[in-house]
Every structure is written in C-alpha cells, then in structure tokens.
Write a protein that binds this DNA or RNA. Structure first.
Lengths: 302, 302
DNA sequence: CATTCTTACGTACTGCGTAAGAATG
DNA sequence: CATTCTTACGCAGTACGTAAGAATG
C-alpha cells in the first residue's frame, strides 16, 4: 500500500538530489530510503528512478509520481497545521544562527518558541553564514537567521532586524574623536571577518565599492576572537555598536567615526518555501518579534 | 505523525457508525481501531469522538478531521489508480453473488478479473439477496451482483444482464402445452422463493399486482433445493429457462406457459460509490461482459 | 578509486491481537 | 445484561541499521 514514508523518500530524494541526502533529511539511512523506493516500485510495477546510471534521475512515470507525492505531503502538512492545537504540536525544529545572534537574542527566540509551541523541540546551531546556507540547501536545518547578503535571497526570507556596526578599537589606538574619511581606515591595522561570514561579505563588497584598499588585515571567523583581538589593541575592527554599548561606555572600546559610516547589516530568517513546516514560518515571525541585538550575554550589565 | 491508518480508522468508523464495524472493514480488531483513534487524539490534542456516551459521535473538530481524512484517502486512492499498472495492482476484492450467478457464470467472471488484474485476490461469497445487501451496507463485501429489486438502488449499480424465468414442473404434473392465464397458476402447488431472495421478492410483488392469490406454497431459500423439489414433482416453480435448457429439452422439466408470462429479472452489480476502490467499478464492467445465465455448472452438456 | 546505490542479515520496535475491564442504556 | 469502547500485556511482523557488494564515472 502507498505510505507516507514512501512519499517522503521520493519527495526528498528529488528535492535534494540523492538518496544519501534524503536519508539525512529524514533521519534514517540510505538503506532504508533505497528500500522505500523499491517498495514503491514493486508495489506499482513502475520504475520511478532511472537505474541505468547511479544517479537519482526520475523516469517519466517517476516525475508524475513525484508530483503526487508532493501534493499528498503538502496536503497532510496542511491538515496537521489546521488540526493541531499549537500546544499539542510535537515536532523538532532546527534553527541555524550566526554568532552575533547566538550572543544576543537567541535565548529570547527559543523562549518565545517554547512559549507558543511547548511541545516543539528546538535545536539551535551556531555557524558561519555560508555554512548555514549550505545546510539550509541540504535541508539539515529548517530555518536560518543570517545577514542578508543579496537583494534577492534564494529562499523565503523575512527581515528580522538590522545591526549597526561601527569601526572600533582599543582606546589607546584611537585617533581622537574627529570623524575620518572612510578611506583612511585602511591606514590602521584591520581585524576583519572572512568572506564566509555574512557581515564580512557585506562589508568587503562595501569597502570595495568605496574604493578602500585593504592592507595589514587580520582575519577572523569568530566574533568573540574578533572582539578579543580588538580589545587587546591589535587593530581596528567593525563591531556591532548596540551589543557592545557597555564597553563603549566604559571606553574599553572606542568608536572610530567615518564618513561614510558603515551601512547597517540586515538580518533575515530564511526557510525552504516548499518545506511543509509552516512551523518554520512561525519561527521567522517570532524571530522578527524577538530580535534584539542590544543585549549581550557576555556582558549583561546589572 | 499523521498516518493513513489513522485516517482509515476515522473514515470507516464514521462511515459505518461503530469501531467494531470499522475494525471488520479494515480486517483488524476494535482494539487496534481504538488505539489508532487515541493516537490521533493524543497527537493532535483534539477530541475526535464524543466519549461521553459510548457512541461513535464526532465532535466538531472531529467532523472537520473526518472531511480531511476522506479527502486524503480519496486522493491516495486516485494516485494508486493512476500510477498502478493493472498488472501490478495488488488488492483483495470481495464479491457477493446469489446462487444463480454462482451456478452459471461466476467462474467466468473470476477468470476475467484474474486475466485483467493478475495480482488481485478475488473472494466470492454466495448468499441471499437481502444478506448481500446488508453486507454491502456494512462494507464487508465490495461488490454484489443481485437481482434489481427497486427502480433506484441505494448504491452505484450497473446492469449486468437479465434472467428469463418460466413456470416449470415435472412432466407428469404438466397440464398440457396450452397457455394458461397467470391466475390459474395458483391452482397448482407452488414452490416459491422467500422474500429474502431477490427473484422471490420481485415475483411476489408481480403476482400480487396481477391479483394472483397464492396458496399451497412451498418456500425455499435454496435454488438447488427448489429445482430438486420441482424435479421430484412436488409442484410448479419459477425457474430460469436458459440454464435449465438441457432439462427442458430432455423433458425432465417442462414449461407451463402463462399469460402474462413472468417478467425477466434484471441483475445489477452494485458497489459503494464513496468506496475508493474503482476496482469495484472494473468488476462491475467485467461482470456485464462475462454475464451468461445460460451455462449450468451442474448440467454442463457435453 | 571515490561515490552512490543495492543486497544480506540480524535486530529493534511499532503496532497488533487476546482477553479482561469499565461504562452506558 | 448486552453492547461498545478502553486497557493491559505479550507477541509478531515490518522496517530498520550495519556492513559488505556492485556499478558508475
């Protein structure tokens, strides 16, 4: 008999391009996926995948079948949403965030999700922008919250907030309070983020556009390391103003004002649209509500 | 997670009005059905059935859920139909027939089904018209082939053929070859079928309409017994001409012509329309093709 | 030769059946 | 008190995971 498990296998194999990926997505093994497909093919006497080469290419019948599978799964998802009281919805959701979010409002977000969906298990993963995007593509996470790096993002994205960064350094390195032209920033030793970081990517392009040539650059893919290096006076770095407010007040760090200033970085929550989980959409909504880059877990104030 | 088994349970409980009936229909136990329902209710945190009294009354949410269940099951059925090569369709179909059909063309029908759907398991049951109708209502059979007793039948019905009956008796009882008025038939001892038999029901009404008062009646619910009793000269009976042709030729039996003659009895194949099995429809079609009340398993000729 | 799917075999777990229990009319 | 659903408990059969095999590029 036709089962949801078979449909899920078919669906995710096609979506992700391999048995292996589908297996990961469905938290099982290639073996199980392979057997679900064989079961389908045997039950219907139809070849779903082209077995000639070892690729997961659909046959014609397979394509039709895939459409039906999608339809059936979407329909089920809709019904589950429709019938579930939020309180009873049992599911896992995997959220990917970057360091800054993890350091500021991730706990707020998780609390908000738990409050609205008490039975949902939230798994969070902290990683670089680029890695998170790959993982979303591979569907090993459900929602990611990352800096917006392109005008049009490849997945359903919701703006959740923005971060104002400023050039900062240890007080003793500071050139005084006067505003300097952006280009002059290149005279300082710089501590920047790599291209795998969203903020790093955005600002690399920005500096390039502004014709700023970068030299003597220290790169870090860890925000904490970046802050630490800056604090220790190794150079000037762009850092989020809001969450470092206390350090700025104490003048452990000082701002180096430039003209033009650094543009804000917009953060978006992204999830696969085709992904049935409208829970992902709910998380995006909650993220927009919870977003607050001002708090700072490491330096929480009183 | 929402499963088809849960939906089937819900669907058939509502269709048939009790857990017990649903269990029978799904070839399982009340226990299993009960658990599937509880599973649903627990998973969704929703009461589907009103547990106050022990009846299978839907709650409001339950009604909505039922609609979704129906939709999902119908959709699955459609997909199964659409994707299955006939050769590969594995399923069971339960056919109910009356004695006359069993005695004449049932083997032809089964052979025809097997030829078109080699993997389908055919189960046939022989019973009285009324019993078969009850069983169709209880969904313990999928298709029944019975005499049409009403102008409008309660289920999807297809005309498959008709049977010409005639009054017959043993040669020594015969009043000669002359045609007698129908009313005079009442003068003979009669061997008739009970009201649970379709033919019996049809002819009872016919004789009543014609103003024939019946006396000295011997009733049988077994066609074979009826033929046997007639052969042994106990009375006059209405019997199918075509399948008794050889006995008439040998004059073991003779026809007692009446005016008006007995009307033909129309046979229909019926199945539940809402029942997803369009296999049932295919059986009805094959029945119309295979139908042949002329053969006679007990007296096959050469 | 690395990748990707298939096959074989032993196991774990879901879901089932039996049978007894509780509630209803 | 008969009917109908629920609960408890032990079992069976499905579906899974591991690991080795085959095919492909």
């Amino acid at each position: 008999m036709l089962t949801f498990k078979q449909m899920e296998a078919l669906y995710w194999i096609v979506q992700l391009g391999s048995f292996e990926a589908a297996a990961t997505r469905l938290s099982t093994t290639q073996s199980a996926i392979s057997k679900r497909v064989q079961e389908l093919e045997r039950a219907f006497g139809v070849a779903v995948f082209d077995r000639a080469n070892r690729s997961a290419r659909l046959t014609e019948k397979g394509t039709e079948f895939f459409e039906y599978a999608r339809e059936l799964l979407e329909r089920r998802e809709y019904i589950v949403e429709r019938m579930s009281s939020k309180e009873a919805l049992v599911r896992q959701i995997r959220i990917g965030v970057t360091e800054l979010t993890a350091l500021t409002w991730l706990p707020r977000l998780i609390a908000a999700i738990q409050a609205e969906y008490p039975k949902v298990k939230v798994q969070a993963e902290v990683d670089l922008n680029a890695t998170l995007r790959e993982r979303l593509a591979a569907a090993t996470v459900d929602v990611i919250i990352v800096p917006q790096t392109h005008e049009v993002e490849p997945y359903t994205s919701t703006l959740v907030g923005q971060v104002q960064n400023a050039w900062m350094c240890a007080a003793r390195l500071a050139p005084g309070k006067r505003v300097i032209p952006l280009a002059e920033i290149a005279k300082f030793p710089l501590i920047l983020q790599g291209g795998l970081s969203g903020t790093g990517y955005v600002y690399s392009r920005f500096l390039e556009e502004q014709g700023v040539a970068l030299q003597r650059v220290l790169a870090s893919n860890s925000l904490i390391a970046q802050i630490g290096l800056t604090l220790s006076g190794l150079g000037v770095s762009y850092l989020p103003e809001a969450c470092l407010a206390r350090m700025l007040k104490r003048r452990t760090l000082v701002v180096v004002p430039t003209v033009p200033a650094l543009p804000p970085v917009r953060y978006v929550a992204m999830h696969r649209a085709e992904q049935s989980h409208s829970l992902s959409a709910a998380v995006a909504r909650l993220a927009a509500q919870s977003c607050d880059f001002c708090s700072n877990l490491l330096d929480p104030g009183s």
